[in-house]
Each structure stands twice: as structure tokens, then as C-alpha cells.
């Protein structure tokens, strides 16, 4: 019953990167997201979109790792956005207050506009 998370990277331009997740964001899933996010931060890409379209369940350990990623993004003057959240995952992010520091969008297009500074 493996729920191993798959993360795929897309860089539509040099300014932003999209990490698309597929599966359960638990401790190992969160660590894989963090590994790829920190590699992007290390090479100077500090505006990240996490597209969770294929993630239907998360747990608080995984989200805590996403908070670590958010902390590092903010420390580098970057931005973090999420899109395609299920209603329950979005509600959980709101409960935890993540939406105060990262932005949540229904789809990638407005998220990318915000990450690029084209829209506030």
C-alpha cells in the first residue's frame, strides 16, 4: 500500500518553478518536496508554486515540512504559492494559518502571475 509521493519539476522561465505533487504528503513526501525546493533555492529560484492537483491527502507532519520550506523561501525574499488544493487541504491550510504567509490559488495561471509580481 505504498503512497510514495512523486514530485515533478517544471520551470516555465528563470523566475519561477512549479513543483507538481502526486500522492500523499506525509513525512517522506514532505521531505521530497523540501529536497527539490531547497535545490531550487540554492540555484536562486525563490518563487515557487506547489501544484497539488494529484494530492488528495496530507498530514500535519508533511505540512510542517512545507512550513520549513516556506520559512526558507521567505528568508530569501521569495514567494510561495499553492494551487489545485482539495477543499479539505485548503481548509487545513487556513486552519494552520499558512495562507497568511503563502498564497492559495485555484489554478496555476493566477498563481504564476502573483509569483512574477504581475498581480497582487
Amino acid at each position: 500500500m505504498s503512497e510514495t509521493l512523486k514530485v515533478t519539476l517544471e520551470k516555465p522561465d528563470g523566475a519561477v518553478a512549479i513543483l507538481r505533487t502526486d500522492g500523499y504528503i506525509n513525512n517522506t513526501g514532505g521531505e521530497e518536496i523540501a529536497r527539490q525546493a531547497y535545490a531550487l533555492l540554492g540555484e536562486g529560484t525563490v518563487r515557487l508554486l506547489l501544484d497539488l492537483e494529484k494530492t488528495k491527502i496530507v498530514n500535519s507532519i508533511g505540512i510542517s515540512i512545507l512550513i520549513e520550506v516556506l520559512e526558507k523561501v521567505l528568508d530569501q525574499g521569495g514567494r510561495l504559492a499553492f494551487c489545485h488544493l482539495t477543499p479539505t487541504i485548503e481548509k487545513t491550510f487556513q486552519i494552520m494559518g499558512l495562507a497568511q504567509y503563502a498564497r492559495i490559488f485555484p489554478t496555476p495561471e493566477p498563481a504564476l502571475s502573483w509569483l512574477r509580481g504581475e498581480a497582487e
Binding site: 500535519s60 505540512i63 487545513t92 486552519i95 494559518g97 497568511q100 504567509y101
Partner: peptide
Amino acid sequence: QIGEKLRAPHKRGWGLRIIRSL
């Protein structure tokens, strides 16, 4: 609290809050 967790080394401890809210 998210503001405290962002700066704290320990970022966990959300389980009961999530359960009670959902």
C-alpha cells in the same frame, strides 16, 4: 501559532487543532 512556528525549530504539534477544526 503559524507566526511562532515559522521561526521555531520545532514546527509540529498541529494534530489536535486540525482534528478539532475539521
